[in-house]
Design a protein around this nucleic acid. Structure first.
Length: 363
DNA sequence: GAGACGTGGGA
DNA sequence: TTCCCAAGTCT
């Protein structure tokens, strides 16, 4: 743990100075978000805090908004979510990405329903599926007013600049955590955490930080050194490989054949078009059946760790009994209601392409 | 520690 | 267009 020899100022009250400045700023500049407490409310409901925090993992506030509203409308309490069908929850999550979050969301809701309530301590929360260091600390602080050290990417950026920590990530994490602990107040830890995240999102931004508007500027070593936007230092990214595969659009009587992806891997638990195995850490292989396929065009889609060129293959009215065993378990989904299938984006793109091709042939 | 795991929006 | 990356977790 090495913070460039920088420490927060030597004055004994500097810790309170930073948290006081941050909290005062939060009191007047907090973003008004659907999952935040209403004025006068003592604290936020654990279910809503947890739901929003899981959705917000690696996902922007703007994208989460509509999903959060739909989930809360459909499953108002954690017990409602615990009782939901897996397929319904996965379909409702479609488009948000990182589908392990949805699988863990259900597992967590069922565990909480079994327990009778959310654990009220960071340690207890940390045991729940899908709650790592960040989310356990955030829920403990925001919903239960516990003092917890909440470190997300915003806090990492703010703190790296505040203390001028120039060790590259991820090696800087221990130092950043210690520094965050040092400035986290004993009271209002939830407001402090949300204030730090709001500051990171609106003032202490990745590029072109608005330092002249920042309440922490007098305390910020990175600002004092100039070029705070240089921090935190990150390791160079590896290039993404391009992977090729095929997906199969099998149509019959106004319906298309959808399968459910197995397991915990890529898009696991989601409805999908049958494919040739491209997602199994390799290029795709063969077709699911021997029939007259025609090309429906190419879908390009970027995943986190590879880019995909997906060749869409089409066939209409397969003969009865010609389907391979693994496809007999699929669902024949009405084309008129394809939106409700909850396809992950790559397959939603493929469906749009297939329907457009269909339009072209009929028109 | 490093890689798997999605997506849409902004510059 | 291309690149970066956002309230991370799990293995």
């Amino acid at each position: 743990m090495q913070a460039s020899g920088a420490t927060l100022s030597s004055s004994a009250d500097s810790k309170a100075a930073v948290s006081d400045a941050l909290l005062a700023w939060y009191d007047t500049h907090a973003r008004r978000l659907p999952w935040r407490k209403l004025p006068g409310e003592e604290r936020q409901h654990p279910y809503r805090v947890w739901l929003s925090e899981v959705m917000l993992q690696q996902t922007t506030v703007a994208v989460v908004g509509p999903y959060y509203a739909r989930f809360l409308e459909r499953w108002p309490r954690v017990e409602d979510l615990a009782a939901a069908d897996d397929a319904d929850v996965m379909a409702a999550w479609a488009g948000l990405g990182y589908y392990a979050r949805a699988r863990n969301l259900l597992a967590c809701a069922r565990e909480v329903a079994r327990l009778g309530a959310f654990p009220s301590t960071e340690q207890g929360l940390r045991q729940l599926p899908g709650l790592g260091d960040y989310t356990a600390a955030a829920v403990a602080a925001i919903a239960f007013d516990q003092r917890a050290v909440v470190v997300d990417a915003n806090v990492e950026r703010v703190v790296a600049r505040l203390f001028a920590i120039d060790t590259p990530l991820p090696a800087a994490r221990p130092a950043i955590r210690v520094a965050t602990d040092r400035i986290t107040p004993d009271r209002r830890a939830g407001d402090f955490a949300q204030g730090m995240m709001d500051l990171g999102a609106t003032i202490c931004t990745v590029k072109a930080p608005r330092c002249l508007l920042c309440p922490l500027r007098p305390h910020c070593i990175g600002y004092g050194q100039g070029e705070p936007e240089r921090l935190p230092v990150k390791a160079a990214k590896k290039p993404k490989p391009v992977r090729k595969g095929r997906a199969f659009w099998i149509e019959r009587d106004g319906c298309v054949l959808l399968v459910r992806r197995e397991g915990k891997g890529m898009l696991g638990g989601m409805r999908a078009l049958p494919d040739d195995g491209w997602s199994a850490r390799m290029d795709g292989q063969g077709a699911p059946m021997d029939t007259a396929w025609r090309s429906g065009g190419v879908v390009r889609h970027g995943f986190t760790h590879f880019d995909l060129e997906l060749q869409l293959m089409l066939c209409g009215s397969p003969e009865i009994g010609s389907l391979p065993r693994e496809l007999e378990l699929g669902e024949w989904w009405p084309l008129s209601d394809i939106e409700a299938a909850g396809l992950p984006t790559v397959f939603a793109k493929a469906a749009r392409l297939a329907l457009a091709e269909r339009q072209g042939r009929e028109g």
